[in-house]
């Protein structure tokens, strides 16, 4: 059974301005999905709807086959959640915050909590308000992981963390993956983190899912074509190809992202546009993201 099933999700905060416009997302057990999109693309909204923190205006959500609004306690018992803007009670100390969570979950794993606390090296008597951003996020992660959730939702978990804290966060998530087989949905602007952790990438663009592919497919079956500007109308002709995800006009050339491997993309451009000196290559996620997010469709 799928861990998460979201169908045809619609949500807007202002009439006529959809944030999510018919979004589908399903996740099988053990999958790690990286959720991409520009600021305001609806990543947080989607995660909040998944966990029942927000109502969708249309569409259905099933999490472990349950409705997060009808069975909120059962759902939250099996979910872990960390967000960039998470607020822990500032006046409590670390021990008290951990105890609070421990009391809420019958599945709490004391050994794991001890191990993470040792690894993070945060003094138990430190007040939350005295912690650095990285330490506070680590406490939040500990609280989200130690009841061994089946689904972990991480909303920009690495936001504002330095490179080392980000790596430690990543390693802790990997440990949860190995030991518990946790399914993970995480949004991040750090695309190299997404490339390390995600097995699948979902990109939200203009309120819809533009890309939903395995990370290996993105690396091998997608390409960026650099197409010389002449003749006029090249970018429109590229956009008219169904395999073209978007184009970006640069001074030297048109950059186009294709849902094809480089050889097939070059062959298609030659066959349909008669342009034989396009250069096509595979690219990393960051470059792909910039070409799509900064381009037109």
């Amino acid at each position: 059974m799928n861990v998460l099933e979201m169908y045809d999700i619609h949500r807007s905060f202002e009439a006529g301005v959809p944030v999510l416009d018919g979004v589908d997302l399903t996740m099988a057990p053990g999958e790690v999905v990286g959720l991409l999109g520009r600021n305001g693309a609806g990543k947080t909204t989607l995660i909040h709807i998944a966990i029942g923190m927000l109502h969708q205006q249309r569409g259905t959500v099933k999490i472990f086959g349950l409705d997060p609004h009808r069975q909120p306690v059962e759902v939250k018992r099996r979910v872990g959640f960390v967000s960039e803007n998470q607020i822990l009670p500032a006046f409590l100390n670390v021990h008290e915050v951990v105890e609070l969570h421990r009391g809420l979950f019958s599945s709490w794993d004391d050994e794991m909590a001890r191990e993470l606390a040792t690894r993070f090296a945060i003094p138990a008597n430190a007040r939350i308000k005295t912690l650095s951003k990285g330490q506070a996020r680590q406490v939040a992660l500990l609280c989200a992981l130690c009841h061994r959730p089946e689904l972990l939702l991480l909303d920009e978990p690495a936001g504002g963390l330095d490179a080392l804290a980000r790596r430690e966060f990543l390693e802790t998530a990997i440990q949860a993956l190995v030991e518990t087989g946790t399914t993970i949905l995480f949004s991040s602007h750090y695309l190299s983190d997404v490339e390390r952790l995600a097995s699948r990438v979902v990109m939200l663009h203009e309120s819809k899912v533009l890309i939903d592919n395995s990370i290996d497919e993105l690396h091998e079956s997608f390409s960026i074509a650099l197409v010389p500007h002449r003749p006029q109308g090249t970018s429109d002709a590229l956009l008219a190809l169904p395999e073209c995800l978007g184009v970006r006009r640069r001074t030297d050339a048109v950059h186009a992202v294709f849902r094809l491997d480089p050889d097939d993309a070059c062959a298609l451009i030659a066959a349909r546009l008669g342009i034989t000196d396009a250069r096509c290559r595979t690219a990393g996620l960051e470059e792909m993201f910039i070409e799509i997010a900064g381009g037109e469709r």
Binding site: G30, V32, R167, I174, V178, R196, L197, S199
Partner: peptide, 14 residues
């Protein structure tokens, strides 16, 4: 698998 995955900081399935 799990130790190499932890060492490299990548998904164990990879």
């Amino acid at each position: 698998t799990r130790s190499l995955s932890a060492e490299l900081g990548v998904n164990p399935m990879t």
